[in-house]
Design a protein around this nucleic acid. Sequence first.
DNA 1: CTGAAAGCGCTTACAG
DNA 2: CTGAAAGCGCTTACAG
Lengths: 335, 335
Amino acid sequence: MATIGDVAREAGVSRSTVSSVLTGRKFVTPETRARIEAAIAKLEYSVNTGARALATSRTMTFGVVVRFHEAEFSPALATYLVALSDAAREHGYSVMLLTEPDGEAAVRRAIAGRQVDGLILLNVLDGDPRLDPISRSGFPAVLVGMPEDTRGIDAADLDFAAAAGLLVDHLADAGHREAMFVRWPEELYESGGTYATRFERAALRRAAERGLRLAPVPVPVGPEQVRATLRAALRDPALPRTLLVHNDAAAAMLPFVLGDLGLEVPGDLSVVSLHSAELARLYVLSFTAVESRPEAVAEAAVAMLCGRVADPRAPAQRRLIEPRLERRSSVATRS
Amino acid sequence: MATIGDVAREAGVSRSTVSSVLTGRKFVTPETRARIEAAIAKLEYSVNTGARALATSRTMTFGVVVRFHEAEFSPALATYLVALSDAAREHGYSVMLLTEPDGEAAVRRAIAGRQVDGLILLNVLDGDPRLDPISRSGFPAVLVGMPEDTRGIDAADLDFAAAAGLLVDHLADAGHREAMFVRWPEELYESGGTYATRFERAALRRAAERGLRLAPVPVPVGPEQVRATLRAALRDPALPRTLLVHNDAAAAMLPFVLGDLGLEVPGDLSVVSLHSAELARLYVLSFTAVESRPEAVAEAAVAMLCGRVADPRAPAQRRLIEPRLERRSSVATRS
DNA sequence: CTGAAAGCGCTTACAG
DNA sequence: CTGAAAGCGCTTACAG
């Protein structure tokens, strides 16, 4: 493999001049630049990123700390990983996967080993132990998720409160006065699932404002239970025929339960939902819904992290990605 | 951050001696080793991986080249990525995500930039253009997937032929004489989906041997079409009431179509399937099935790649992971 | 505008 | 068994 020295020799200049055109930090006369570029092309030279990292003490790599939460249903992880990698690449960064089961240890090791310039924490909940080593060390990082206390760390996430507002408004605007609120299992709220909590609070508040009565129906984990729970709820005459869904597993299963029971949307039932776009790709989901926009969240997170690396002492930010309502006429108009 | 020099000073030895205990390559007397280890602990020293990489010309990082194929249905990508990262870590390697849409360019850049010691190509099909720069350069790599022509590159994958054999045998053993063969869309076979082809060939051969008549039913992409196709097939009186399924989308949708039509397994219908375990986690899939074993495939791939890095000129290998039959009594016994 | 020199933090023959 | 020196391939003040 050619080195910067080979290029310099080939072009008849010094290594520093080659470096200048490589980094673009100094002006080089067009003629020498051309000679150097020709030499680079001829030798198929490409900078050794490790050596550059050592010299600049910038690895141009971000670590993504993946985390699993059993109570969740998340076929969207791959989408996030790819979106993060894509966004990072556009900013000149590579992405390293950190999957150690002990997330806190993963963070410590990543910081100590200086393999990365910054960390992206996926799926952050309230009280997430991974925040500790970060806020202690001040290492550049960004949270995907929005805990109550971000410990002074930048964070990006979908605006779940706004999403709830959009969906409640949509139902209220169509004249609905009550709705079943199909939610996550109770454990998720208790274990710090802030997106669930943010959605719920905003939904309740807005529903109160708009005169929409909400009947909560928690849906447990696991395909069988999801199906059974939904089936029971839809058969219960005491529950409203309008659904506000915030639970991906329930959203995915719903069409099939409707099929089981012979119910039509919006004829027999009105449905609005918040779920990942990935989910809609895999299943038949034709509900008016708020998209979760993983690409936008990923891009925001990467942009914030780049900013953080550039200016480590800037004040911490929270960035909420605006949700979008996708209308798919699954809501009947009531008078 | 402490450097090796700081540790050396603290322990009162030279940097090379510290390096010796770090790499474990040379014998160091227990006393000095103890002093050095104490210094490391005290200073919270941790080796700078980039500097080590430059000195050893080993980055201890593998690149994973992700690739999308629209005709597929793959909520299992995340499972593979995590499994690869976990396996790599156990072998002392980190994993970098390479998601450039142009996979061939991604490979070229990775090789040129020397950011990684080896490449893992996910989801390799026949004639995959990513193989080209690899076989040209001889850069260490391993394919996940098994093209007809591996171009001299190591490859690991599930043994789809053996899987087909297991499933066909299971049906034949239970006395079945004919089965619907629920397959992937035709495009997938044509575009080089070798796992599909390997499964199909073996299924046809074994079925012929066992006197099982196979009626092929290709299932197109997209939830709506999957559902419609399955529904039509299950209503067609000319088609057998026994299903051999190799199509994750169809496997996922099947339980719901059965629900639609009021069919029971194994009473009305016998079903065997090959699908990813991830799928079973997300859906209600209670069919006798062959697991796709992503963790085992990932571990094999990583192990092969480590071997390849250690000995670049060893003969290329193909490793087929043995499938396992999970019996879930979805097959009726016929006489 | 270009180049010589020092340095980034390691490892690895090579002496001793 | 330990250490001094050179080198991995870059970048970056600093001279000129």
